[in-house]
Simulated scan of single mutants.
Amino acid sequence: MRQHLTRRLIAASSAAVVTFGGLAAASSAAAVPAGESGAGVSLLSSVDEAAQQEALDYWTAERIAEATPLDRTIAAGGAGGDAGGAPAEAAASPATPVPSTRSTAATPQQPPTLTRSARTAAGTVTGDAVSRATDWTGGTQSRVGRLYFTQGAGKFECTASSVDSPKGNVVVTAGHCLTENGKPSTNVVFVPGLDGTEEPLGRFSIGKLFTTTQWRTQDQSSPAALNFDVGFAVASPRDGRSLKDTVGAYGIDFTDTLSRVTVLGYPGKALNPDGSVKVDGSTLQYCTGWQFTDSGPGSTTDRATLCDLAGGSSGGPWLRDLDPVTGAGTVTSVVSFSYDNNASVLYGPLLGEVAKAVYTEASTA
């Protein structure tokens, strides 16, 4: 689903956990009405087993082929003049970390000037930074996969990943993959470890969707919403095994600073000028490099990194200390948007207490 908004921003605030345990499951045709709290936790929907099975059955090969990648492109002028003016042609070597030119509380300044390093072999997590989307060949990443869903009559796809939780059933993605303008996504299915058209780890149905109240209730083209563009889905067990037991789970950190990250995602199908297939839409791709802060008057509090992953990668994990052999890593953000004047820089929300409260609620659902 390719949507173009005028702008998106994100801010952090503290939150307590709110319990929605008293809400009943929805019928197969409808979801439980969303619940809100001042803590920033929003339950978008809760569906019963029959509805979950309908969602699994809904995604035939034909419908998957029709799914449109969700894309967030924000007009730079609408988000504060030169916001998004991060180094368009930059990439940093891990041996020389790029410091931020401002703290998250400092007056916005120009981003650091960097020099692009040569692209390295796919799958390399140590070594020079990779700022152009590159096919991942560093081993199976079973924890990350496709998220298929419908919104209205449309069929769409994002990226999502399994994160650690007490019950082993939580998936993290972008808030805009779970709701648009307050309406929850439907027919939501998570396909971890997608490899081309193969689904070696099967599918997981989704019982509940959560996001931040800020994302759900605010103008989703405004800074007030965009700084909280994150969501969590609750995956139902399959054959008596949790999602974590089946595919593993990344750690998740709500206090991360400007660490080096590897961004994973499944960009949508893209063609070369001659009509040949550039990206087939089902191949995991990655970038890796240092984070920096958004810049420019009125800019977001999001983290930024040099990466040109295209639409469909929305919700993909930003991973600190990713081990390409074991697949272990820690999620510090998710793919949220890029500015229309600089597609080579991706932005992801600065996770904080609000996102932690939403995660906690999803973990206990």
Rank of each mutant, 00 (worst) to 15 (best):
Asp245Trp: 00
Ser205Asp: 12
Pro184Thr: 00
Val172Arg: 05
Gln151Met: 11
Thr213Trp: 11
Ala153Val: 12
Val189Ala: 10
Pro237Trp: 10
Asp274Phe: 09
Pro273Arg: 05
Gln220Thr: 13
Asn169Met: 10
Asn181Ser: 15
Arg146Ser: 11
Ser205Thr: 12
Arg203Gly: 07
Val234Met: 05
Ser221Asp: 15
Thr217Gly: 06
Gly154Asn: 15
Thr257Tyr: 05
Tyr250Thr: 06
Phe190Gln: 03
Thr246Gly: 10
Phe149Glu: 01
Ser221Ala: 12
Leu226Cys: 13
Gly182Met: 11
Arg146Gly: 05
Tyr266Gln: 14
Thr159Tyr: 10
Arg146Phe: 09
Val234Asp: 00
Cys177Glu: 10
Ala235Trp: 02
Val188Ile: 14
Gly248Cys: 08
Ser161Asp: 01
Asn272Glu: 00
Glu180Tyr: 14
Asp256Gln: 14
Leu194Ser: 14
Val144Arg: 13
Arg203Asn: 07
Phe254Gln: 11
Glu157Tyr: 06
Gly268Cys: 08
Ser162Arg: 09
Asp164Thr: 14
Thr150Asn: 14
Ser185Ile: 08
Lys155Thr: 12
His176Thr: 11
Lys208Arg: 15
Arg216Trp: 08
Pro273Asn: 08
Val191Cys: 07
Gln151Arg: 14
Glu180Lys: 08
Tyr250Cys: 05
Thr217Lys: 12
Val191Asp: 08
Leu178Thr: 11
Asn187Ser: 13
Ser162Cys: 08
Val189Arg: 04
Gly248Tyr: 13
Gly196Ser: 12
Phe149Pro: 05
Gly138Phe: 08
Asn169Gly: 10
Leu271Tyr: 10
Pro267Ser: 04
Val170Lys: 13
Gly248Asn: 11
Ser221Val: 03
Tyr148Val: 12
Phe156Glu: 06
Lys208Gly: 00
Phe210Lys: 01
Val263Gly: 09
Gly182Thr: 00
Val261Glu: 00
Ala233Ile: 00
Asn169Tyr: 06
Gln141Ile: 14
